[in-house]
Write a protein that binds this DNA or RNA. Structure first.
Lengths: 195, 195
DNA sequence: TTCATTAATTAAACTAGTTTAAGAATTTTG
DNA sequence: CAAAATTCTTAAACTAGTTTAATTAATGAA
């Protein structure tokens, strides 16, 4: 059932013959992690790339002042990784932590390379995936520079209602690039408006 | 000579047999554009993806208030495109304009697809390129959220000395996500410090 | 169930960056 | 080369968001 989710995910990007798709997803292994577990800590090397089938993660970094900045949340059907650390097997600058008991399908760097070598379509698949990802990060950057904090919050809530429910406001504030206190003010203003 | 630059660029990412590399870069055509020319305007579809061999471009968007936000600059050895508009042949939200007389090597969407189909290594090449690009955009986002405007300017000047020379401070300010006036103040403060 | 910890809220003082406006410097164009 | 347009600078008033600090609410661990 977990593998079905990944197969659907792949098939949406590149159409693959069922047999080949089965072989490909077989490269991934199931891994359960308890809430609070760190998949990766700053300065470690990310050994496994993961696809979330259940639960939720935060991918974040700690700045010089010691405050946490959330880069993104990864819930079901998202990938969880430090793309740089995994690809080049270099020290990461990110933390990855489970926000709930979660289930992943994971693959090692060596096995991922095998996948790329043996299945040109996997190369294509991830080419398209990363291509979309670049566009998405560019859009996020533009949103940060053109929208107010309140508009960004509105956008977040609309786009990710489940994540809004799940994670603390403190983490959402961090994702939005504002303080917890200011988000609290925004939320009160919105609540007042609605009455 | 222009093609040599592209060949070197490709070879740094994926090692390719010389004959194959020649065939691949042959898919690209030289195009000269005069300073001020728009390669793309908001709501148009980007028909050609370009590799800059000479000159410089700005990739930007206009926000609701009518102010321009520079997403990035593309000088020699950079790609110039709206990744989303080109890949899906959909209306763009970006403007692309030559800041100088420039030379590009360009390819159409159909020819690019042919490249992908016929050369699995090209698929791999762009997979790696986009992968690095995602990491770079993530880093930029984190910089925007953790560094002050002055630190970001310092970082920009250090990383892109030629672009700093070439483009107006107004555009640099826009890239950094601050106003022209505030950048002017930052620059004065820096000049005062250095005396 | 209770204690301890962390998150959320509120409010006041603050600051990084914006806005507006006007003059000086530079670049572009005819 | 001169006029027009744009960019750059300066400064004062302003504001979106931060900081600090204190209180309350919620969550987690024993």
């Amino acid at each position: 059932m977990y593998y079905e989710l990944l197969k659907t995910h792949f098939n949406k990007i590149v159409r693959l013959p069922p047999r080949e798709l089965d072989t490909i997803v077989d490269y991934y292994q199931e891994e359960k992690v308890a809430k609070g577990t760190f998949l990766l800590r700053k300065s470690e090397i990310l050994r496994l790339e993961g696809y979330v089938v259940e639960g939720c993660f935060k991918i974040s970094t700690i700045d010089k002042k010691g405050s946490e900045k959330v880069l993104y949340f990864a819930a079901r059907d998202w990938w969880v990784m430090d793309i740089d650390s995994f690809a080049n097997q270099t020290a990461s600058s990110l933390d990855i932590q489970a926000l709930e008991d979660s289930t992943l399908l994971v693959i090692s760097k060596a096995r991922k390379e095998q996948l790329y070598q043996e299945f040109p379509k996997v190369e294509r698949l991830f080419r398209i995936m990363y291509q979309r990802s670049v566009a998405a990060w560019q859009k996020r950057l533009i949103r940060n520079q053109t929208m107010t904090a309140e508009e960004r919050y509105q956008h977040f809530v609309t786009l990710y209602p489940e994540i809004t429910e799940l994670v603390t406001n403190k983490l959402i504030a961090s994702y939005l690039g504002i303080t917890q206190e200011f988000l609290s003010m925004i939320r009160r203003r919105r609540a007042e408006k609605r009455t």
